[in-house]
Amino acid sequence: MANILLNVLIAFLVGSVLFGLQRKIMARIQMRPGPPIIQHLLHTLKFFIKESTFPKTAAMPFYIAITAMLSVIWVAAIIVGPVTQGSLLLIFAIYAIHKIVEHNAGSSSGSPYGKLSCVRAVFSAAAEVPLFAVLIIIYFKAGTMNIAQIISYQAANGPLIYSIPLAAAMFFVLILSKAPYSPFAITKGKDIISGYETEHFGLLRGYLMMSESTAWYMLLWVFLTVFIGGLSPLWYLVGMLALSTIVGFINATTPILNPNHSIMTQVSFALIGIVGSLVLLLY
């Protein structure tokens, strides 16, 4: 239990600081001073003591329960990932539920922005779920979906990023789509205010941000573990910093795409990645 609590705390703190780092990098590229790196973490904590009300149009208690659902799935991901090194299939299922949570958070709020975001969540799932299906390529290569066995496979045969680079690139596109201000962040595009989170303000926003930070940490953890191998805590941190920095550069220099372009770009990546990886595996 202590191990799980420690991992949840680390995931939240590291994820929040990495989000803050991304914003700082984006600001510096855009010639702005930017907020302090710990600003995202402070925002998250601040929301817990802010005044909160629940809109009349919200579907209670679903409106509150859906925020707990996001936290539940990412705590489960921590148990499946760093704590037990279980099956990648469970991580895939958790990611699929994450898309459902985005959809339902939007629809439960009663806000038109939330509802538009809820439609976009379904739309983007059509592209992001195939990107996550990259995991099947890992199965073809390593012969297992168990994280501990994938780590052992890489210890014996070298990191998978060298043998299936297109699969790694696809997973990176998926990670990119979960970053704030990402070109693929259509569910939280600024044209619909904050998307599915628009009507979740105050405490519930802080709670959602907490889960999102954990989700960010977990996605980076899965990438590093599955494509590079089991690393020491320091190398995990270095890897996460490097990936977040690259994402910050991309987000600072690209606009948020409109939904059609975003989905088509992601689907194109998925198609190239899956077909290309299968060809690489055959030859």
């Binding site: 817990f48 005044e51 709670y207």
Partner: peptide, 19 residues
């Protein structure tokens, strides 16, 4: 862990939030 960590955080938030 899966049930009580999230509900613990949420209930703490519902208590600590300003009304």
């Amino acid at each position: 862990s899966i049930i009580f960590i999230p509900t613990g955080i949420l209930s703490f938030g519902l208590i600590s939030m300003k009304r």
